[in-house]
Design a binder for these strands. Structure first.
Lengths: 189, 189
DNA sequence: GATGACTATGTACTATAAACATAGTTGCCG
DNA sequence: CGGCAACTATGTTTATAGTACATAGTCATC
């Protein structure tokens, strides 16, 4: 239930409506996971039922924009957030990547096509790295928790790019037969 | 639909039953994500309905063990697998970690408790690193796709541990007030 | 022959993610 | 000033993934 506690954490900072919560999640935790707005609106509704948050509806006339629902954290919500924050992290790190899922099976397919796909990934992560470098520089290493996570995202990005390039070279330089023979055999002991 | 195609990929190699599929997924892709057997049995049933796999039931007497359902990939399944393998990876990398989710909010909580939690993570990843080093050494860098992914897991593990230790030191050495003041302020621009 | 670890499968429930759907606001370009 | 595109804002539905619960046979060993 990461979504729920993340929302509580943000409301702990200040009152927000759903759309704003989504923006902040993308800005602060968007290093590797994106949140779907559908989840946020559903969670907020549920959390309201649980007494963790309260809601005030703002008519369009009140603020000039489209209608909003402003959510605030309750004392019960603050308690739940504090309890969660101090508890031991449950569950392990999870990395899922549609590209890596394919990668392990590349031995079954065409090597040239595999190289094409890898090249595509290199381009994606080079762009992402440039964007992240900008962001981290703008934050100027504030020495806080959010800054440290941003650094982690950057370091990961750099490492991953290096790995992609090394994989490309190794696959490209080796001869076809060797890779396709060991590619399948190595999958299962 | 990663589970479905992963199963097809394994059946593409040889016929298997659910339990064996789970073992292989954990061995080959378990670097960062674990699969639940419930998903596998449900997926297999569904894929059978879609004509991607066929199933033969083996009575306990046939093999001495508990009853098994042996699944085989069909030509249609092979076609679907090949199409997927050559297609562009859809969606982005996703990293989810209950610890990191807490980490960004540590500015709202107690610094000593935060350090305790970080120390716990360091221990977890040190053990994992030792285990992975064993595994990779045993594979002796076969130079294939699976081996490359195993290397990635190892490199990531090393990098992450370094980051955890750096975070611990930075948080530990800085004074309380500075961290708690900037901790919340930095969350939102 | 009891017990505990392992192999094997299944169902029910909950959480997460993607897709579909709607509508007002703002700014700009012709 | 009319239209159109981008952005803000919320909502529902469906598919997929993940957790928890549940069962049962095998194998080794004490």
């Amino acid at each position: 239930m990461a979504v729920k506690h993340t929302i509580l954490g943000l409301l702990n900072y200040k009152d927000m409506h759903g759309y704003r919560i989504k923006e902040h999640i993308e800005k602060n935790f968007g290093h590797m996971w994106s949140i779907n707005h559908g989840q946020i609106y559903q969670s907020l509704k549920k959390m309201q039922g649980e007494g963790l948050v309260t809601m005030v509806e703002l008519a369009p006339s009140d603020n000039g924009g489209p209608h909003k629902k402003l959510y605030s954290i309750t004392d019960e919500g603050k308690g739940e957030f504090a309890r969660w924050l101090a508890s031991d992290p449950e569950g392990q790190m999870l990395l899922r990547d549609p590209f890596l899922t394919r990668f392990v099976f590349f031995g079954f397919g065409d090597r040239a096509r595999a190289l094409e796909i890898i090249q595509g990934q290199i381009e994606i992560y080079e762009e992402q790295l440039a964007r992240r470098r900008d962001n981290v520089t703008r934050r100027k290493r504030q020495g806080n928790y959010v800054g440290l996570v941003a650094d982690l995202g950057l370091t990961f990005n750099e490492m991953y790019l290096e790995w992609l390039k090394r994989a490309y070279t190794e696959i490209n330089e080796s001869d076809d037969a060797a890779w396709e023979a060991t590619g399948t055999a190595a999958l299962i002991d």
